[in-house]
Design a protein around this nucleic acid. Structure first.
Lengths: 386, 386
DNA sequence: ACCTTACCAGAAAGCGCTTTCTGAAAGCGC
DNA sequence: GCGCTTTCAGAAAGCGCTTTCTGGTAAGGT
């Protein structure tokens, strides 16, 4: 046997070309030396509580009580059990515990569209931090914006008997999917499951962390008007999402208070590229050019900023640009983007706190309204001709 | 009872002030109407397979086989079982399944420092996508860079009997913690557990996805030299991390090939702020100013770019700046950053694939080397006086 | 000294499922 | 038509743990 051979092979499947150039990948093998003093015991599949009890010379029940502190156990016995447990390297089987105990397990489920999106990453960070403090494990599910996957995940999380299911982000355009989701969630909630959502208007009443999209956008509009702008355009997302609808409506409202009508709304996907494309479309369309553009999310605004730069439009000299959310990247671009700041981390902490407080089905659900703050940065200024 | 009251109260605890300004938060309640046609059955704690079997008039065993397709079941019986299952809204108990079946459960554990960091988010995205394809649930653990938490998570994931444990990112400076980690991991691996890591040099031999930090940094150095630079500085991270050490060594190596000695190395934390502080420190220190700066990660480079701008240093006219990793934000800043691109998503996909292939303890571990590509962007140019 | 009370260890009954094992019924060749 | 294999449903044995329930022993009251 050529066990020592340092075989090398090119990895067979490598999905998709690299972002910028083909990249080499190389696979090599190496032997695993067995650490001498770790060879204490035969590596039985898993050390069970039974083995620990036997080693300590006590009963299964006593071992369980000693390890969990569920009931008084004589000190010497407890000592023996503890010693046996770490001699054997005992790790309890969470599945068995979950099955045997009415307490269930210590996990929560978090469903979002894409962990890669900074908006979700921010909220997820808050959830993770809060979960860590309570010794909860988070099962993360990325739907990649496919409704079917979202529903599948709810049912997987139900199967896992997660303590709570958290949904982050706007629902889907398709009402049919929303209905299917409700059908999936409803029995869960009725059976005592906890559900909480961020920014999602649902037919089912569940605990909600709801950014004040409308008020935030209205306040932003007011600030923009105060800078002297009169001609606006909005880079909008899928109009069926309440987040989009609310921000758009709020912006309109804010303008209306100043007697201004919103001239143009361009629709785009909810991504950087969507914002980029929408901005290009706006520039390509004829008519008088707006002096100020509001993109309904920062992610879109970042794309729009790139598009404006590519088109030679200076921000804010030729055109002002504002977003919504205050994701970290907006401070790094130049000019930094004016936006409506949402406390993403706190929202994450709040949504899990909300979910864990009491069962969702307890007759009433809570709505935690989060106010956004207009943050004026370099991307907005006085309109060109002033 | 004033069940209809729309009680409002300010949420009691709200950790930390908002990022930019105090924000109002408002809590309100609302009643949950019971949807009429969903009231089919009493919401027993959970529908069990036993109930399904009884409803279908078959035995437990048959119900199990019918639902899982583990063995042939007469068509009519299978039909009855399926019908009963979704009439009752049966969801299998994953814990019971995991306990009863040698297959174990369908979850993997992913441990990283911080989901909020774009580098991790990128890799995590790849892991999530691959996991989704295989119907695996990912248990995400953020250590927030606390070694104790990392070890605690390994043991939680062991308890959950995760199919694999994935560790992303460099290990800790403190050798004692590394040893503790190994002690935690070792019995797991010996018991057939699968472990794979990204970018982590460990005493224990586990499957590894290893970016070619050294070669990448050397190639970057060569490109920079080719632009005409002769005086360099490096914004480095904690030197105990192999990632840092390798990139630094590689960069030195690349320079050495051109007969250039690295003038200055400034150490900073592995964050945006670390990069910012390191850049300030570099500017503050006397002596001749380097014409080109390499930050060992893009996150640090982004911070450095901000610091340079604040100090009135033009990039790349006065000073060139380059990073490593190619996280999304480096394309959005201006000028966009030159960097060594790593295929983060693919790395995530590969690490989970590696872990799932065969048990880690099978005598040999594999190392998948990932080559980075130098991507020249606007942040680098010819040195000032040329 | 006798009986009650308190304390605590062990036996055993599940938790909800998978999977052998057993056996009944049906299909086949002779 | 008889024994053979084949097909497939049901009984039952766990998986590893928690948690009653039971019972033995020591302490306290009279």
């Amino acid at each position: 046997m050529t066990a020592r051979s340092h075989g090398q092979e090119v990895v067979p499947k490598f999905r998709g070309p690299a972002t910028t150039a083909p990249l080499g990948v190389e696979l090599s093998e190496r032997e695993t030396p067995v650490h001498p003093d770790t060879r204490r015991r035969a590596p039985a599949a898993h050390v069970t509580l039974d083995a620990v009890a036997r080693e300590a010379g006590v009963s299964l029940a006593t071992a369980s009580r000693a390890l969990n502190g569920t009931a008084r156990v004589r000190d010497d016995l407890r000592g023996r059990v503890r010693a046996a447990a770490d001699l054997l390297g005992y790790i309890p089987n969470a599945h068995a515990q979950a099955l045997a105990s009415p307490e269930g397990n210590r996990t929560v489920g978090l469903i979002c569209h894409d962990v890669g999106d900074p908006y979700f990453a921010g909220i997820a960070g808050g959830v993770m931090r809060a979960a860590a403090e309570q010794d909860l494990l988070v099962m993360l599910a990325s739907t990649f914006r496919e409704p079917a996957r979202e529903i599948a995940y709810v049912s997987m999380l139900r199967a896992q008997r997660a303590r709570a299911i958290l949904l982050i982000g706007s629902g889907f355009q398709d009402r049919a999917w929303e209905r299917a989701m409700d059908a999936e969630l409803e029995p869960y909630v009725r059976a005592g499951g906890r559900v909480a959502v961020v920014s999602r208007h649902r037919s089912m009443r569940v605990d909600t962390v709801q950014p004040e999209n409308r008020a935030g956008a209205a306040a932003l509009a007011a600030s923009l008007v105060a800078l002297g702008h009169r001609e606006f355009a909005v880079l909008s997302g899928p109009p069926e999402l309440t987040t989009v609808a609310d921000r758009l409506a709020g912006f309109r409202e804010g303008l209306a208070r100043a007697g201004i009508t919103l001239e143009r709304v361009v629709r785009g996907a909810f991504t950087r590229e969507g914002g980029h494309a929408a901005a290009r479309q706006l520039l390509a369309s004829g008519g008088s050019r707006p002096t100020c553009v509001f993109a309904v999310t920062d992610v879109m605004a970042v794309g729009a900023l790139a598009a404006l730069r590519e088109a030679g439009v200076r921000v804010p000299e030729d055109m002002s640009l504002a977003g919504f959310d205050d994701i970290p990247v907006v401070r790094e671009v130049s000019p930094p983007l004016t936006t409506v700041a949402l406390p993403l981390t706190e929202m994450g902490e709040q949504v899990i706190a909300l979910a864990l407080r009491t069962p969702s089905g307890a007759g009433r659900s809570r709505v935690l309204r989060i106010e956004g703050n207009v943050v004026l940065r370099g991307s907005t200024g006085a309109p060109p001709g002033s």
